[in-house]
Design a protein around this nucleic acid. Structure first.
Length: 269
DNA sequence: AACGTTTGCAACCGCACAATT
DNA sequence: CAATTGTGCGGTTGCAAACGT
């Protein structure tokens, strides 16, 4: 069956946007607001695919974007968030005001990867590249997943929480005298081994269901397909940190769903 | 100056999934 | 409830600028 293409590509412009196109898009969105990207190009007089318009607006034309170089603080925050979230660029971008997922993704690939490699850290695992030679007990976990200093007020899932964990020791190698400044308490002068993170963690911003029947249908579909949609499991709408860090929160919809999944899996497995 | 290589980033593509009909 | 539509995401590509020889 397949779906129809998002637009008729035959007569569409591709490639770099011109100033005139930018102006048309900005003018139209100022006037009518965002939304309905499919019909926007025609309405705005643009020979562009709706997706292309959306991308251009989201990544470059939005007035709230912060342009310019990344600061050292942003670098470290990206590294920390990546260690926690992986390649969830949109989630990472959501924690950096004025930065876009595309910008962060590019910055990661061109700068931060190299930076981590120069530190001897695998950018994919956030562990020392030669870690395989290190006894596990000597290696401190790089992930917030196991960072007990992270605290959430799970009684208030709708309230944005500012979390100030103690600086987390990321990596320490046995016998590395150059890194003796790294301590488990995080008091150190070595910026290379400690990240002082102030994470602003919001609730999983689940989309509201216009129809309760849709929600039920999607929940039911889990049973029939065995797949867990992002809305249900908090992947796209915002990672459920309660689940990710091993907490359980009765008032968090995702935790309740994960309960459902656990029950469902226990029936199946 | 000319050419080849590397780097940085804007934009595209395909896919997944929520929303709607 | 199946089919369809619209949106958003992550991976990848293409190209211009910077750099090296």
């Amino acid at each position: 069956m397949g779906r129809s293409p998002c637009c008729e590509k035959a007569h569409m412009n591709k490639g770099a946007w011109t100033k005139e196109e930018d102006q048309l898009l900005v003018d139209y969105i100022r006037k009518h607001g965002e939304g309905c990207w499919r019909s926007l190009p025609r309405a705005a007089g643009l020979q562009r695919c709706g997706k292309s318009c959306r991308l251009r607006w989201m990544n470059y034309l939005r007035p709230d974007l912060k342009r310019g170089n990344f600061t050292e603080e942003e670098d470290e925050l990206i590294i920390k968030l990546h260690s926690l979230l992986g390649n969830k660029w949109s989630l990472i971008a959501g924690r950096l005001a004025g930065r876009t997922d595309n910008e962060i993704k590019n910055y990661w690939n061109t700068h931060i990867k190299r930076k981590l490699l120069s530190r001897g850290i695998d950018p994919n695992t956030h562990r020392p590249i030669n870690e395989s030679t290190i006894p596990p007990s000597k290696t401190t976990t790089p992930s917030l997943l196991h960072d007990e200093s992270v605290q959430f007020d799970l009684a208030k899932p709708d309230q944005q929480q500012t979390v100030k964990p103690e600086p987390t020791v990321l990596y320490r190698e046995e016998g590395d005298n150059n890194n003796n400044n790294c301590t488990s308490s995080g008091t150190t002068s070595d910026d290379d081994c400690v990240l002082n993170l102030e994470l602003s963690v919001g609730p999983a911003t689940t989309r509201s269901y216009r129809y309760e029947s849709t929600r039920k249908a999607n929940l039911d579909s889990v049973e029939s397909t065995g797949r867990w949609g992002s809305e249900l499991f908090g992947a796209q709408a915002g990672v459920c940190l309660c689940c990710r860090i091993g907490f359980h929160n009765e008032s968090c919809p995702n935790c309740r769903v994960s309960d459902a999944r656990t029950i469902w899996e226990s029936k199946i497995l």
